[in-house]
Write a protein that binds this DNA or RNA. Structure first.
Length: 413
RNA sequence: GGGAGGUUUCCCGAGUGGCCAAAGGGGACAGACUGUAAAUCUGUUGUCUAUGACUUCGAUGGUUCGAAUCCAUCACCUCCCA
């Protein structure tokens, strides 16, 4: 199957400036340079970026040349698209640090090197720009009237207002495209669908400045749940690709617990599993989908963290939710003799100590709600305490709710 | 520069002197049901040595027996006019 058709069938393509031309470019040419921009707002990429990385990888596998643009300069402004609040301003140092972290994570999916993929930083060409020069070269081509009607500023115009600083974001991103068009013959900019306005303005700028209409843009479906919410957010924040921020097990579980309605969609979007194979999974219904979810979680974890970690996460999940409970990969808290009073420790203190409850009060409520078990015995009394002798094999297992397990071991001082 | 309004517990948002740890919704957590899903129903959602005490309603001072509520100053935000 041709690349464009595959992207389409996987449901990746949201909008395209000129479908025929882009299709031709992708399917009948090789080594086509294309770029995707990433703003270095945090020190790790997250699931939202992941889709872009996978796209880069697909394109690269099809013989094209990805340009990963790190927004060293644009991050200093912050993209106002779809945001209700202005972003926190980052210092140059923070941005550089973040960019470096991105670099490391991207390597998992995209192969960088001569004639392969390249990474560029727009700080290199934007920062040297002089203000007047920028206004005269780039600013003249933008109509404020038109910009104000752009969908991407809508929430800000109705809400908290848009600062001039952020208003410039679109110009800078547009200029990025122009720069890459000139410097690297890059004729295609890709991005999430929220980037549509920024992308078409870039293509527009090229048309005006260069007088050529062979710059194209294409956007990809945003990762949203069937309810229209952004995917990749949990109560703890984003689902990160950095194992320090989101452990492979948590990452695995995130996908394992995906909605029925989203499994196939996500599988098409994010994995390299063939469409034929996915079509088989699509026939499954009800609880049979559990196996598909497991497959999805495994695949994605392997893509991000490697097969070894994916295997571990799978095993850990199986042992926790499967037949017997294995305590091997559980989060663990160590207690010493000093933690006990006359050989006992109160359950409330224990829960807080393990981080299962943030206060004694919360611990008490959990117990009263019947949510806590120790070694498979439900704790009913908030005043209960655990004796040192309970640590027969040197450990006890606390279970909070259905999915949270915590191991406590007692060490000899 | 002038004028108006706002800042409430994780978020949105009610409350305009005691009945306020503060309605309602969202989210989150737990229970039931299940398939480690969704939906639904129930409970919880400031802290503590817990039928009580303490801390909280932008910040600081003040009025009052008593303040989220009134007054003053400061900070930040939004809107309107220039």
């Amino acid at each position: 199957m041709q690349l464009f058709e595959e992207l389409k069938q996987r449901g990746l393509i949201a909008q395209c400036t000129n479908e025929e031309k882009v299709c031709d470019l992708l399917d009948n040419h090789t080594g086509v340079p294309f770029y995707i921009g990433f703003d270095a707002t945090a020190d790790s990429l997250h699931v939202g970026h992941f889709l872009q990385l996978v796209v880069m990888s697909r394109m690269q596998k099809a013989g094209h040349k990805p340009i990963a643009l790190i927004g060293g300069a644009t991050t200093m402004i912050g993209d106002p698209t779809g945001k209700t609040d202005m972003r926190k301003m980052l210092t140059r140092e923070e941005i550089d640090h973040n960019a470096e972290c991105f670099r490391v994570q991207m390597r998992r999916l995209v192969e960088f090197g001569e004639e392969k993929a390249v990474m560029v930083n727009n700080a290199d060409w934007i920062l040297p720009f002089n203000y007047m020069q920028f206004l005269r070269e780039v600013g003249v081509h933008f109509s404020v009237n038109r910009m104000l009607t752009a969908e991407c500023f809508k929430s800000r115009l109705e809400g908290k207002g848009l600062s001039f600083l952020e208003f410039n974001y679109m110009l800078l991103q547009s200029y990025d495209f122009l720069h890459l068009y000139r410097a690297m013959d890059c004729k295609l900019e890709l991005g999430g669908d929220d980037q549509w306005s920024n992308i078409i303005n870039g293509a527009d700028l090229i048309r005006r400045v260069e007088g050529k209409d062979d710059a194209y843009g294409m956007t990809f479906t945003l990762l949203t749940t069937s309810e229209g919410k952004k995917m990749g957010k949990t109560e703890k924040g984003a689902v990160w690709l950095d194992p320090e921020k989101t452990s492979p097990y948590e990452f695995f579980q995130y996908w394992r617990n995906i909605n029925d309605a989203d499994v196939i969609k996500v599988m098409k979007l994010l994995t390299f599993i063939s469409l034929d194979e996915i079509a088989q999974y699509e026939k499954r219904e009800g609880s049979e989908l559990n196996a598909v979810k497991e497959k999805l979680a495994y695949e994605l974890t392997a893509m991000v963290h490697g097969a070894e970690d994916a295997e571990k996460a799978l095993e850990a999940a199986k042992s926790v939710f499967g037949v017997g409970i294995s305590s091997e990969n559980m989060p663990t808290t160590e207690l010493t003799h000093a933690d006990f009073e006359a050989g006992n420790i109160g359950v409330l203190q224990l829960l807080v100590k393990c981080g299962l409850a943030s206060s004694n009060g919360e611990a008490r409520k959990l117990i009263m709600g019947g949510g806590i078990s120790v070694d498979n015995e439900k704790i009913a009394d908030t005043k209960a305490s655990i004796h040192e002798n309970s640590f027969e094999n040197g450990e006890i297992i606390i279970k909070k709710g259905k999915k949270t397990f915590h191991k406590v071991i007692k060490t000899e001082d």
